[in-house]
């Protein structure tokens, strides 16, 4: 088994997939770092001192102003209201929600990447992991070996798991190292407040706790990893089911993008909460944002995602072991 997994990993490394992903991440991090740095610069010019409290207060005022405009939807309004209360809480407790530094950059970047960008990166590796062997015909060579079919598929899956782990950790490392050039490498122990929960438009602060940022990052990245895993499993299934790699990728892409769009307008379609792509934004629960559909929680999303992942795996194995290969 070990040598099988190793062999599969070798294929992934040979195809330079991980390098490509690392390259894309590095470029994006560079771009975002630059953009954020520019933004800071502009703020410095406009407001003089960049005391975070000043900035935060201004954000609160801005949101308060946006709430009063009439064209705004009810969901957006309640989200803004929650955000205001949260920011006010940070302000009242004198905790900077965005302590400058590379760890904070990592935190926000992961927050924004969990639903779309990282799943896409996972797809780069996962989408053709089985189907490419089909189209290249190498699958026949692979299956003529005296190894059970499920073992072959299992080795591919394990190799995928390993590459996903690498991608997530690389994602963290690269964003830390690159953004640190501009923002500095400090800020691991900066306090972060977690445990906000939304009750309608009221913010519940009963379970609030203060943790150092490194703990938050660990939690956040493990959730990112979990999401990547589930997305990887589903892409894996598609790769088994659909012989044509681009078609499989298309299906996966459509699912991911529809998830990103749906989350913004799905609040009245309640059963949508059982779709995996609505549940991808796990880090939002940590940060205490309002969920896209009333009644969703971290536990709920974790269970839904686990079920989807397991189902995808089951389908992959059942289909692969029974399929005619020609």
């Amino acid at each position: 088994m070990y040598s099988l997994v190793r062999n599969e990993l070798l294929k992934i490394v040979r195809k330079k997939r991980i390098l490509v992903v690392a390259g894309i991440i590095a470029i994006l991090v560079g771009m975002f770092t630059y953009a954020q740095w520019k933004e800071l610069d502009r703020r410095l010019e406009r407001f003089g001192d960049v005391d975070w409290r000043t900035t935060l207060q201004q954000q609160i005022i801005d949101a308060q102003n946006r709430i009063t405009s009439s064209g705004i939807s009810d969901e957006w309004k309640s989200q803004l209201q929650l955000r205001i209360q949260q920011q006010q809480y940070y302000l009242d407790h004198n905790v900077n929600p965005v302590e400058p530094g590379a760890p904070t950059f990592m935190r926000t970047f992961a927050d924004h990447s969990i639903t779309l960008f990282l799943p896409l990166m996972v797809m780069v590796v996962a989408a053709d992991i089985v189907s490419s062997e089909r189209s290249a015909g190498t699958i026949k060579l692979l299956l003529t070996r005296p190894v059970k079919r499920w073992k072959i598929l299992m080795s591919k899956y394990l190799a995928l798991l390993l590459s996903i782990s690498i991608i997530v950790v690389l994602f963290g490392l690269l964003s830390y190292l690159i953004s640190g050039i501009v923002f500095g490498y400090q800020g691991w122990s900066a306090p972060v407040i977690i445990g906000f929960s939304a009750e309608g438009i009221e913010l519940n602060t009963n379970a609030v706790q203060l943790i150092p940022q490194w703990q938050y990052l660990l939690m956040e990245f493990s959730l990112v990893w979990f999401v990547a895993l589930v997305v990887g499993s589903i892409a894996f299934m598609l790769s088994v089911l659909i012989k044509n790699t681009p078609a499989g990728m298309g299906v996966m892409l459509a699912a991911l993008i529809s998830g990103a769009i749906l989350s913004n307008m799905v609040s009245s379609w309640e059963s949508a909460k059982y779709l995996f792509m609505i549940n991808l934004d796990l880090t939002a629960y940590l940060a205490g944002k309002a969920p896209p559909i009333e009644g969703m929680s971290l536990g709920f999303s974790l269970i839904v995602l686990t079920l989807w992942g397991l189902a995808a795996l089951a389908v992959s194995f059942i289909v692969f072991t029974r399929q005619d290969i020609y």
Binding site: L218, S222, W225
Partner: peptide
């Protein structure tokens, strides 16, 4: 490949630990 293998195992262990903690 050996390096990638070990690195990925470590990453996975870290992430699993983090998930457990979360």
């Amino acid at each position: 490949v050996r390096f990638v293998f070990i690195f990925s195992l470590l990453s996975m262990a870290l992430m699993l630990f983090g998930l457990g903690w979360t």
